[in-house]
Amino acid sequence: MVSRASSVAINPKLFRQAGANYLIGDGQRIPSGKSVTFQYAWDHYFQITPASVQTDC
């Protein structure tokens, strides 16, 4: 697997590789109604889908 870096600097607390997966929002809860946004620029598009989601009821 070749690791590539975005040509746009990304705050690692917002998006970073953690082993074979990636963490968004420093791996912390994202409060209801809030979002985590960042920009990246690679030579190809890839879809980002969650590997897991936990909800609090």
Rank of each mutant, 00 (worst) to 15 (best):
Y22G: 03
A51S: 15
C57E: 05
S6C: 04
I30S: 12
S32A: 13
A5E: 10
D43P: 02
A5M: 04
R4F: 07
T37I: 11
A20L: 14
R16G: 02
T37Y: 02
D26I: 08
R29S: 10
V8W: 02
Q54I: 04
I48M: 15
T37Q: 11
Y45N: 07
A20T: 14
L23W: 05
V53L: 15
M1D: 06
P12Q: 04
W42A: 06
T55G: 04
T55F: 14
K34A: 15
I30V: 15
I10N: 00
G33C: 11
R4K: 12
R4M: 12
G27M: 14
W42S: 01
L23C: 03
A41H: 06
S35T: 14
A41V: 07
C57P: 13
P12D: 06
T37F: 01
C57G: 05
T55E: 04
V53K: 13
S32R: 02
G25L: 11
S52V: 09
L23H: 03
I48F: 10
T55I: 11
W42F: 15
V8Q: 02
Q39M: 04
R29N: 08
A5R: 09
D56L: 06
K13R: 11
Y40C: 12
I48A: 11
G33H: 14
P31Y: 03
D56S: 05
I10S: 00
F15W: 13
Y45R: 11
V36W: 00
V53D: 05
T49V: 14
T37G: 10
I10H: 00
W42P: 00
P12V: 08
S3C: 04
L23G: 01
F15H: 03
F38A: 04
Q54N: 06
G19D: 07
F38I: 01
D43C: 05
T49F: 04
K13P: 00
R16P: 00
C57L: 03
S32E: 06
V8Y: 01
P50L: 11
P31S: 15
P12C: 06
S35H: 06
Y22P: 02
V53P: 06
F46G: 04
C57I: 08
T49N: 07
V2S: 11
T37P: 00
G19R: 08
L23K: 09
N11S: 12
L14Q: 10
Q28D: 10
S52Y: 11
